[in-house]
Amino acid sequence: MVTSRDGLCGIGELAERAGVTVKTVRFYSDRGLLPEALRSAGGHRRYGPEALGRLRLIRSLRALGLPLPEVRRVLDEEDGADDVLEEAVAGQLREVGSELRALRWREAALRLVRECPPGERADRLRLVGAVSAPPSTEPLVRFWRGWLPQRMPARAASAFLEVAVPRPPDDPAPEQVLAFARLNALTLAPCPGTARPQPDAHRATGARGAAVLYTGLAEAYELAGGPLRRGADPHAGEALDCFVDAYTGAYGVRDSPDFRRVLARRLAADPRIDRYWELVAEVVTAPGSAPEPTPGAAHDWLLAALEAQTAAGAA
């Protein structure tokens, strides 16, 4: 690298060989990333043979988007440099992924506004403007926190939220952006009355029973997913039995035809959030694909199966 007799080079020569400006070399030097070997009698910076390789490494790390503190960690860590570099690159990949998701959502939102009739644009702008990019599911989580029984065990509540709160697609179609924006608006809308209505099934179980109930319901909804995907009509079977068992386990009672009739009446009278589940299905289903069963669709299918069974028993 060097041409001088002492094996050192000046800042201008180093900058030229590295293909950068003198200002860039001075910047990294002043921040301690590119140490000088010494200063000449006139105060000029002098660099050793290793400076060119170090400067090129700095430029490569910066080109990957690593901030200066991460660059310093990689340069300073001798034995674990590979581990530090891997960690830093992984962090940058996560950040880039988030930026890409945000750009895809912005693109889909812009297409949504551009392609809608002029008379609907103001409403579309209001809806999509209330959603961050990438979108946050926090309003949906807060909605369910208010709906679920108080003092419900954290593990059971988290398991339910995993199912009830849809994960926004990374590369959405405009229709999915619109559905998520409407879902966001639905969960942020003020509740009628003084409090969000709670289903009787929640109030009757208590905190411990709620955990039993929702664990059982999750299993029943999964079992109902198969018939739903096949387009089968509601019917008695394993999924319905699991559905009823969730309630008997939560209430601490035995299954019987009388219990099933009471349960059918109670569930039919409970508050419903059908619009929420309709929008969830639109969010998670790509245009042109068969809709994936949601917990709401599974619940409706199981309730219809229960009502059909109890009606047949009464007849």
Rank of each mutant, 00 (worst) to 15 (best):
S256H: 08
L93V: 12
W301H: 08
G225A: 15
G91H: 01
E36Y: 03
P287V: 08
V244G: 02
D300I: 09
E86Y: 05
A211W: 04
P67E: 00
P192R: 14
A185F: 10
F27G: 04
G216H: 01
P174G: 07
P118Y: 09
E86P: 01
A204Q: 15
G129S: 08
V128C: 06
A130T: 07
E99M: 13
P199F: 10
E238C: 04
R196G: 10
A41M: 03
R94H: 06
R208F: 09
I273E: 15
R46Q: 10
L125E: 14
E307Q: 15
T285N: 05
G226N: 05
S40F: 02
E86N: 06
D270M: 11
V280S: 01
G80N: 12
A201T: 14
R72P: 01
P190A: 10
L75G: 06
A220C: 03
H299P: 03
F259G: 05
V165A: 11
R265D: 15
T24V: 09
V20K: 03
C116K: 11
P172E: 10
S98A: 11
V262W: 14
F160T: 12
R126T: 09
G129D: 09
T187K: 07
V89E: 01
L279F: 09
V71E: 00
G146Q: 11
R62M: 04
E292P: 03
L103R: 14
A122P: 04
M152I: 12
R229F: 02
I11A: 11
D170T: 13
R111T: 14
L8E: 02
L213R: 10
L85Q: 01
A185M: 10
A37H: 04
Y47S: 01
A211S: 15
R275E: 15
A218W: 00
Y221N: 06
A37Q: 05
V2C: 09
E138V: 13
D6G: 03
R17P: 00
A315Y: 11
A210N: 07
A41P: 02
P69K: 01
R203S: 13
A90H: 08
L125M: 15
L64G: 03
L306M: 07
S158H: 13
C116M: 13
Y47D: 00
D270Q: 10
D245I: 00
A224L: 01
V113C: 09
T285S: 08
A181R: 03
W147L: 15
T187G: 10
W147C: 11
P169S: 08
A269D: 15
P117F: 06
S40N: 03
R196V: 14
V113Q: 06
